[in-house]
Amino acid sequence: MSAMEYGNLAYLVLLGAVIVFWFFIQNRQGLNKTLQQGAVWGLIFLGVIAAVGLWGDIRQTVQPQQLVMSETGRIEVPRGPDGHYYLTLEINDAPVRFVVDTGATSMVLTQKDAARVGLKDEDVIFYTEAMTANGPVRTAPVRLADVALGPFHDRDVRAFVNEGEMSKSLLGMEYLNRFARLEINNGRLILER
């Protein structure tokens, strides 16, 4: 835990102690009833703490997923809670979650995702450079044997592995241009081939 987290914990413990002390002083005549109410408030407090701690997992579970309509060749992706669009592609049979970035030219993998799809260290040689919002970053050009989005398979797809830190891989226009139609309408990204 960081110093900030220890400080927050100490504050919460102190606040809880003050509330419990006040609660007992106010209700010193009916101690049995006070203990029951204290137990209820304690359970409510623990429930709130659990919900806050598990919020990331809960949000991921209820988050809308991409919808693939194979018969019409259409893929619909709802906008995420953070305002971005996310697509999960199967690269060499490994699922990789991408943030759709229409401002990026190419498909850019994080080093972690590159390892998950089977790229070895000898395949990833950082000798090119890309200009990002944070300045230049070294990249490694790679070829991906099989990239699938729903029923659509592409072979020998050009991509880059980013040497810098990225939280998610980026899906740029070079891949998105493989679709005949790309539309953003009413909070949905629509792709058709």
Score class of each variant (00 low, 15 high):
residue 1 M to F: 05
residue 8 N to C: 03
residue 10 A to E: 15
residue 11 Y to I: 09
residue 15 L to F: 13
residue 18 V to E: 08
residue 24 F to T: 03
residue 27 N to H: 14
residue 28 R to L: 04
residue 30 G to R: 15
residue 31 L to V: 08
residue 38 G to T: 09
residue 38 G to R: 09
residue 45 F to D: 06
residue 46 L to G: 02
residue 49 I to C: 07
residue 51 A to S: 05
residue 54 L to H: 04
residue 55 W to G: 00
residue 57 D to M: 13
residue 59 R to A: 15
residue 61 T to A: 15
residue 64 P to K: 10
residue 69 M to F: 15
residue 74 R to I: 06
residue 78 P to I: 12
residue 79 R to G: 08
residue 87 L to P: 14
residue 93 D to Q: 12
residue 95 P to T: 09
residue 95 P to Q: 08
residue 98 F to T: 02
residue 99 V to M: 14
residue 100 V to D: 11
residue 104 A to R: 02
residue 107 M to D: 04
residue 108 V to Q: 04
residue 109 L to A: 01
residue 111 Q to I: 04
residue 112 K to Q: 09
residue 115 A to H: 15
residue 123 D to E: 11
residue 126 F to T: 00
residue 131 M to Y: 06
residue 134 N to S: 13
residue 139 T to L: 14
residue 140 A to D: 05
residue 143 R to N: 03
residue 143 R to F: 05
residue 158 R to K: 08
residue 160 F to E: 14
residue 161 V to G: 00
residue 161 V to W: 07
residue 162 N to Q: 04
residue 162 N to G: 02
residue 171 L to F: 03
residue 178 R to V: 02
residue 179 F to G: 03
residue 180 A to M: 05
residue 182 L to Y: 07
residue 183 E to S: 09
residue 189 L to E: 11
residue 190 I to M: 06
residue 190 I to F: 01
residue 192 E to P: 07
